[in-house]
Write a protein that binds this DNA or RNA. Sequence first.
DNA 1: CAGCAACTATTGACGACAACAATTATTGGT
DNA 2: ACCAATAATTGTTGTCGTCAATAGTTGCTG
Lengths: 141, 141
Amino acid sequence: MRALHADTGYLLYRLGLHSGRLFNATLEEFGLRLRHYAMLRYLATVEGALQRELSERLGYDPSAIVSLVDDLQSLGLVERQPAPGDRRSRVVVLTERGAEVLRDTDKGSRRVTEQLLAPLDPAERETLQQLLARVAESARD
Amino acid sequence: MRALHADTGYLLYRLGLHSGRLFNATLEEFGLRLRHYAMLRYLATVEGALQRELSERLGYDPSAIVSLVDDLQSLGLVERQPAPGDRRSRVVVLTERGAEVLRDTDKGSRRVTEQLLAPLDPAERETLQQLLARVAESARD
DNA sequence: CAGCAACTATTGACGACAACAATTATTGGT
DNA sequence: ACCAATAATTGTTGTCGTCAATAGTTGCTG
């Protein structure tokens, strides 16, 4: 019987857990979880998104989006604005304070990735990034 | 602001979630979760392990080991045997039925990894496996 | 233009899971 | 004989993923 860690799928699962733990540990001081950080990061790239879009892009259930936006809104990091032309939707936008916090937390995020990839040299890191990106791309059915 | 999926750490986190979901989906018909499968796989390589060892090797909390072994025992896939020389410990061993189920589930497991790595050719898969193994090794402090 | 199906955000429920404290029984050392 | 360390267990707490149900809104279609 081959060993369990010889299985790439299982290895991905375990490293994913580990990576999430590292992220959450560094985000703890900001009162944020990885999910919040992911949302802030995404909002910084688009300047306003419907909650439905956040659900699709981030891969979280719509009900999860609601409480995540609630959290960030109560911290003053995002705002819900009425969507032009559709009263069902809300546009979530990053506040000035949200952009600041994002800049701060980004340092910690880079440290986490640095720590994870410590045993790899720059060329290997790039290779890993490319391979993972292709796997992720094909997984996004 | 660079995109979120340009971050290898976050990519690992997301792929880990995805990989876990795929595993759990194929294990569902056997009434098992990924954690159970991991334990069965490990037990098949060692022929008997203390619960403390399972906790260390699989990276799960001792309390989690208790309920996992409970589950597998109630399905008749493993047994708790008295540990020779130490009445505190129990030796967990795979039953005949456990070995059968493991053989069956292993097919599904290979399908999952195959599905995950579909976009990569054999050489790339090997590269990815090696890189991930090194990252995992350094993560096991 | 009336009605109906589809959609957006929301609430609530449930089980899985991680992390941790506390307890019981047992061991090994002094 | 005592005491610190250890193995398994129980229980608690918070996070998370998944799913069902609802209210309000929109746009299509007959």
